[in-house]
């Protein structure tokens, strides 16, 4: 059967044309342009002025906000990613049991993911208010210690992470799908062999969902590195620099308060630093992934 290769190619390009155009305009162009801007001083009102590595020099040596921003970002990632993976997996395993009402729990757990971020984050800001918020009121009535939450330099980042974790339903759903595609014959066999639940988990469940786990580690880490909405709405970086993650710092430089001139070149330089960090993290994770993920030798 001879296939008309020519019409294949023509059709292919027709089908893929919009995506290609999109790639050039929305990926290639911004990449190149923002790299150029990172080497300039640019306030958006007059043309950019080339200053070479000046932005990067200022970033690493003079800027009082940069290193705290890196610290805050690292803190966020180290708190959030492990917790979201563990909680997501735990919830998924929890919802993978056969109890009446499990569908309801699963739906409710996913509910926060569906709602508009700006709305829910603002709601949480209100809940965490030390004086008029719900959380402290409930804690107080239960006789538990209260906190200043977002206004405490120590608890501000944990509070931000807490709000982010409210959306753990998204992670849960993905792990749930992974869990449910583990062939049940394996569990049967393990049961026959007399393996306990913990052993089953470590030797069967974990290895078989490890590809998804790897994907999740990468996705969650890159997302965490780019967190913006929560710190912006909840604390705007404060108190001090405790929640001033890199994305927020970039935004403040590029889109500062009323009456201040934007520093778009400087912000672009910071964007590139973040970009490099993301690539590095992904590369490292992928490189070491073969150590702990299980593949069943199926081709890519």
């Amino acid at each position: 059967m001879s296939r008309n290769a020519g019409s294949d190619v023509k059709a292919a390009y027709l089908f893929i044309a919009p995506a290609i155009i999109g790639f050039i305009v929305f990926v290639a162009y911004p990449l190149v342009r923002s790299f150029y801007l990172a080497l300039t001083k640019y306030n958006g009102l007059v043309d950019p002025v080339f200053i070479g590595l000046g932005n990067f020099r200022r970033l690493f040596t003079v800027d009082p906000a940069f290193w705290p921003a890196l610290r805050a970002t690292a803190y966020l990632v180290l708190l959030y990613v492990p917790l979201s993976l563990v909680l997501g997996l735990a919830l998924a395993m929890f919802c993978n049991q056969r109890f009446a009402g499990v569908r309801l729990v699963r739906t409710l757990a996913y509910l926060p993911v569906v709602l508009p971020a700006v709305a829910t984050i603002t709601l949480w800001k209100f809940i965490l208010d030390p004086q008029v918020g719900l959380l402290n009121t409930v804690l107080d009535r239960l006789g538990l210690p209260t906190s200043l939450w977002l206004q405490s330099p120590q608890m501000s980042m944990p509070s931000v992470v807490l709000v982010m974790l409210w959306g753990v339903g998204g992670t849960m759903i993905i792990f749930l799908a992974a869990l449910q595609s583990v062939p049940t014959e394996l569990y049967e066999a393990a049961r026959v062999d007399g393996a306990g639940p913990w052993s089953v988990f470590l030797r069967i469940t974990m290895p078989l969902i490890s590809p998804i786990m790897l994907l999740q580690v990468i996705l969650q880490t890159t997302a965490a590195l780019q967190t913006f909405n929560q710190p912006k709405i909840l604390t705007n970086g404060g108190p001090g620099f405790s929640t001033n993650v890199l994305m927020l710092s970039i935004y403040k430089n590029g889109f500062p308060n009323l009456g201040q001139i934007p520093q778009l070149g400087y912000a672009s330089a910071q964007v590139w630093v973040l970009f490099v960090i993301i690539i590095a993290v992904i590369a490292l994770t992928a490189k070491f992934s073969s150590l702990w993920t299980y593949s069943d030798n199926t081709a890519d």
């Binding site: 911004p30 342009r33 780019q226 964007v271 970009f275």
Partner: peptide, 24 residues
């Protein structure tokens, strides 16, 4: 090639595009 390019562009932080695209 195109497949890898598309997947690779998932790594691009959205913020990279904000300033250039606004000007565009």
């Amino acid at each position: 090639v195109w497949f890898y390019l598309f997947v690779g562009s998932m790594l691009l932080p959205g913020v990279v595009g904000l300033i250039p695209l606004f000007q565009l």
